[in-house]
């Protein structure tokens, strides 16, 4: 066998992407839906009916119809855009996390907020964590019946490309060591007690983040005999991260919101 140099074995220099912001999101990516024309003048029923998770809703006032999308329910299937391509398009920019569930709804006449890169958010986050804790932020992940899609993305946060530990964020093995609970899935009935116990075992002050459409609203699994239809039906939730699944860039935005919330609550 040919003897390899150290460089060859160790690989390709620095893999951690310094600026992995929205520029790295492919233009094909189904991030969120956006509305084209205002006011809406088509047949709203066909659009509303096309959505498998009932994420779209219509309000009428003064003969104007406003269509709203609840990003907490949207699973980015793109069926609405197929039903009405002139009114709804898919954009690559993902929906943002929020602290209040109602803010997940976006109306057809609202503006999109500014965007920052993964690296920029991470650095702000590191400063805040340092100020707040003087140490790292400890996260416990709980799967309350997810399809494993959100777990793939949360695991990706730890890979050398995103490498979230450089911002002082650390995944821990026990809820007793955690500041933040990252909960995925529609809170299945079989997991309900385990989720509650994990929540109780986490020392205060604690923050609960609902990750993904299932955790925010039940997603495609909805509210059935086997699920409770969202994490907030089982335990109090502080931050909602929409997406199916949310990509790492959105997850870190959600963590920033969580730390912000902790700072305000602490004062």
């Amino acid at each position: 066998m040919k003897k390899k140099s150290d460089k060859e074995i160790l690989g390709n220099d620095i893999e951690t992407v310094r600026d992995i912001g929205n520029r790295s999101i492919s233009s094909n990516y189904r991030g969120s839906i956006s509305f084209n024309v205002e006011p809406f003048n088509g047949n709203e029923e066909s659009i509303l009916d096309s959505c498998p998770t009932r994420a779209l809703s219509a309000t009428k006032d003064n003969k104007r119809t406003t269509i709203a999308v609840d990003h907490g329910k949207c699973i980015m299937c793109g069926y609405c855009s197929q039903a009405s391509p002139e009114f709804i398009t898919i954009q690559s920019k993902p929906a943002s996390p929020t602290k209040i569930k109602k803010q997940l709804s976006e109306y057809s006449n609202s503006q999109i907020q500014s965007e920052k890169s993964f690296e920029e958010i991470g650095n702000v986050l590191r400063e805040k964590i340092k100020k707040m804790f003087g140490r790292s932020l400890a996260i416990r992940e709980v799967d309350a019946g997810s399809c494993n899609g959100c777990e793939i993305e949360i695991t990706a946060l730890n890979n050398p490309i995103y490498d979230i530990e450089r911002f002082g964020i650390h995944f821990v093995a026990s809820p007793r060591h955690a500041d933040v609970l990252l909960v995925t899935g529609p809170a299945s009935k079989n997991m309900e007690i385990a989720l509650l116990r994990t929540y109780e075992a986490t020392p205060s002050p604690k923050i609960v983040i609902a990750v993904g459409a299932c955790a925010c609203s039940g997603g495609i699994f909805g509210d059935t005999y086997a699920t409770t239809g969202g994490i907030d039906k089982a335990i109090p939730v502080d931050v909602y991260i929409p997406g199916c699944p949310p990509r790492p860039e959105v997850l870190i935005q959600g963590l920033l919101l969580a730390v912000d919330r902790m700072i305000t609550n602490g004062k």
Partner: peptide, 29 residues
């Protein structure tokens, strides 16, 4: 079976095209 979400029962109440989305989410990977 901690992650039991009633997928088989749920499919019986959905449109066929929506069940396709459900089948994608049986296991995300």
């Amino acid at each position: 079976f901690y992650a039991h979400k009633g997928i088989e029962k749920l499919a019986e109440s959905m449109k066929i095209d929506d069940v396709l989305l459900l089948s994608e989410r049986i296991a995300g990977d």
